[in-house]
């Protein structure tokens, strides 16, 4: 297998990792605020902050990792996406900045503030929406290059049903993934009232998630026939995705084995996300960048892969330590440490 495919596969895995951890994080911020508005904050806020406090920074790194990696492996992406995305990506940076720093101000600072809470919750939904624009752009038709000047066609973007359905899908998936994780976390902590609340969230957000998934698929078929056909060829992956969704729903509904339910949700998104990604082949940005032409020099590509492996050898044990200390330490989760 050629180095650029390896590179892209690893990057895609990282983006998937970000999708999961960031969804948990973004959704939790929204639920924390929602619970406050509906005066249920005493039930779940303790739970959420115990999970989030040690890991919020790690979440951010997944994202930095992905875009630095993409630019490293495929420098042309910097040129096209960088030129076209100045405004939407700057807005995303500002939202991320507000969210990250306000989280620290709120949790490590001295005073609890409603404004921080609101911004924390609201940005949790706006960030996935603004980041998903990059996915829409990759489908082609929104970026135009004329006389060496790359520009984004805002009118076409804002009137595109595909763009809006991707935004919708991003938001509802965040809420679904997050509430499923919190359900698992609450049951692990043996926190009955919180469990009841977040389980209801999870059951509620499952329906819009599957509907948004279907509409996105339909609009994709109208916008990019090639990508749609490629994905249809991967029908078995889409089938597995739906299958895992149904398993997750059944477990949530039965009210047992929430850990397995969350894993099913992870697999549901794993197969959908990879079917989408593989279906994109051979383009990174339709029609300007292909995987083969856009790749960096082989020497750099190989050095990056080596750095990757070295980095993972360092990171995986550290991540396991982090999880054992906070996520899977029953006493910590229950609030005893």
């Amino acid at each position: 297998m050629s180095y650029e495919i390896v590179g892209l596969a690893v990057l895609w895995i990282f983006l998937y990792g970000y999708l999961i951890v960031a969804s948990v994080d973004f959704g939790a911020g929204f639920f924390a605020y929602y619970a406050k508005v509906t005066k249920k904050d005493h039930i779940i806020n303790q739970l959420i902050s115990r999970y989030l406090s040690p890991v919020w920074e790690v979440t951010n790194v997944f994202f930095v990792f992905f875009f630095v990696g993409v630019v490293g492996f495929f420098p042309d992406t910097a040129y096209y996406y960088g030129s076209a995305l100045l405004v939407p990506a700057s807005i995303a940076i500002i939202l991320l900045a507000i969210r990250g720093s306000f989280y620290a101000f709120e949790n490590y600072g001295s005073k609890k503030s409603n404004v921080y809470m609101f911004l924390y919750g609201a940005t949790g939904l706006l960030i996935p929406a603004s980041l998903s624009v990059a996915l829409t752009l990759s489908e082609g038709g929104f970026i135009v290059e004329e006389n060496g000047v790359v520009s984004l066609q805002y009118m076409e973007l804002f009137t595109s049903p595909l763009a809006w359905s991707i935004v919708g899908l991003a938001i509802v998936s965040v809420l679904f993934i997050s509430s499923t994780f919190l359900t698992f976390y609450a049951s692990y902590a043996n926190d009955k009232p919180a469990l009841k609340l977040v389980r209801n969230y999870a059951l509620f957000w499952s329906t819009p998630t599957i509907i948004a998934g279907l509409t996105t698929f339909i609009f994709l078929s109208q916008h990019n026939e090639r990508h749609f056909q490629n994905m249809m060829d991967l029908w078995w992956m889409l089938g597995l995705s739906v299958g895992f969704f149904m398993i997750a729903m059944w477990l949530l509904y039965q009210g047992k084995r929430y850990g397995l339910a969350f894993i099913s949700v992870m697999l549901q998104f794993f197969f959908a996300f990879f079917a989408y990604g593989i279906g994109h082949y051979p383009y990174i940005l339709d029609p300007y960048i292909t995987i083969a032409d856009g790749a960096t020099h082989p020497s750099m590509g190989i050095a990056l892969i080596v750095a990757f492996i070295g980095g993972l050898l360092l990171l995986i044990p550290s991540l396991i330590l982090l999880m054992r200390l906070f996520l899977f330490d029953a006493d910590y989760v229950k609030g005893k440490k």
Partner: peptide, 20 residues
């Protein structure tokens, strides 16, 4: 790209242990 990438690794490593 290589040092940029390694910088992110170092940052990742730091982020994990700051949390801990």
């Amino acid at each position: 790209a290589l040092p940029l990438f390694m910088e992110v690794f170092a940052f990742f490593f730091e982020a994990i242990f700051i949390g801990i």
